[in-house]
Amino acid sequence: MRFSGKRAVVTGGASGIGRATALQLAREGAFVVVGDVDEAAGRQLAAESSGCIAFRRTDVTQADDIEAVMRITHESGGLDIVFNNAGAGGAREPIDEISADDWDRTMALLLRSVALGIRFAAPLIAARGGGSIVNTSSVSALGTGYAPTAYSTAKAGVLHLTKMAAANLAKSNIRVNAVVPGFITTSIFTRHLDIPDDRRKMADTMIAGAAAKAQPIPRAGRAEDIAAAVTFLASEEASFITGTHILVDGGLTIGTRASWDPNEPSMLTALDAFK
């Protein structure tokens, strides 16, 4: 029960990585307030949690909503842990086609929301003597080809914001870290596609199959894989860790496919042919 007596906020907690993390925190003793725009899923999660999880509708593109979920949690007993996780794919257009409005909306959802989550949570966590903030970034922050330009840029911003916040908040005994997921089988890829549910499920299945072949560990990533990393960073086991990130990607970013797949031609295998 690593989080007995602790109180946490998880944004984007009604599904996917956020849901898995909220459940893990609750299983280990925390009282969790889930903020999400999906009221049906959020209320169902709270109803099934035996009183360990509460729900508040939270649109993280709205500063007032972010401030409210932090304040209400604090006023109901304190705030110790925040997981700034809410997000979606954002605008898909390349940099030479994207509109200014689409760029701004993506940044508001994926980067500004994290900054404001930290801003509104920090004084409340400090009032408890310190605590932990964890932010969701992405492998797309580390290189190209993983996600659209606006999404990737925002997630790279989250990594640097994490370092800046860790430096700013060390005086208040608040640790700030990030988790960097690889291909995780959640609905983030298809959630906003205007297609029937059966086709969306089919697409999710195809994505999961492709993800299982994309990295050295031969299975798709699961929301629970990320939840394990987040709960570690939020716990006292990570009390000497701040201003950094944990990469949870099944080895996706360790190198080109030829570096780990013996069936993939590489420069070395080409040279071996001349021996």
Results as ranks from 00 to 15, higher is better:
39 E>H: 05
14 A>N: 07
135 N>Y: 02
192 H>C: 00
242 T>G: 05
237 E>T: 06
80 D>H: 15
191 R>E: 11
98 I>P: 03
63 A>N: 07
256 T>N: 11
98 I>R: 10
11 T>C: 10
70 M>T: 06
179 V>R: 11
84 N>S: 11
102 D>W: 04
95 I>G: 09
154 A>W: 01
268 L>T: 10
52 C>G: 12
126 A>Y: 03
140 S>I: 03
7 R>L: 07
45 L>N: 09
9 V>T: 12
188 I>K: 02
181 P>C: 13
116 L>P: 02
99 S>M: 04
188 I>D: 03
198 D>L: 06
207 I>K: 10
122 A>D: 07
15 S>M: 09
219 R>T: 04
215 Q>I: 00
178 A>K: 12
104 D>G: 02
265 P>N: 07
58 T>H: 10
271 L>R: 13
103 W>G: 01
202 M>G: 07
273 A>W: 00
181 P>V: 13
106 T>D: 06
247 L>F: 00
194 D>C: 04
262 P>E: 13
53 I>Q: 12
197 D>A: 15
56 R>S: 11
158 V>Y: 02
207 I>G: 06
39 E>R: 13
244 T>W: 03
138 S>G: 08
107 M>R: 10
42 G>N: 12
225 D>I: 05
115 A>F: 10
263 N>Q: 15
152 S>K: 07
155 K>G: 05
263 N>P: 00
236 E>V: 03
233 L>N: 07
236 E>H: 14
252 L>P: 01
131 G>T: 09
226 I>T: 08
118 I>W: 00
74 H>E: 12
262 P>H: 14
265 P>S: 08
223 A>E: 05
47 A>T: 08
182 G>Y: 01
124 L>A: 13
54 A>T: 12
238 A>R: 10
146 Y>Q: 10
218 P>S: 09
251 G>S: 09
204 D>V: 06
246 I>L: 15
175 R>Y: 04
186 T>Q: 03
144 T>S: 11
75 E>A: 11
102 D>T: 04
140 S>A: 15
131 G>N: 12
154 A>I: 05
150 A>F: 01
26 A>F: 05
60 V>C: 08
19 R>C: 01
275 K>S: 07
73 T>M: 06
148 P>A: 13
37 V>F: 03
82 V>N: 06
102 D>V: 00
137 S>A: 15
123 P>R: 12
275 K>H: 08
62 Q>R: 15
190 T>I: 14
23 L>E: 15
149 T>I: 05
230 V>E: 01
224 E>Y: 02
223 A>D: 09
154 A>P: 01
69 V>F: 00
226 I>R: 02
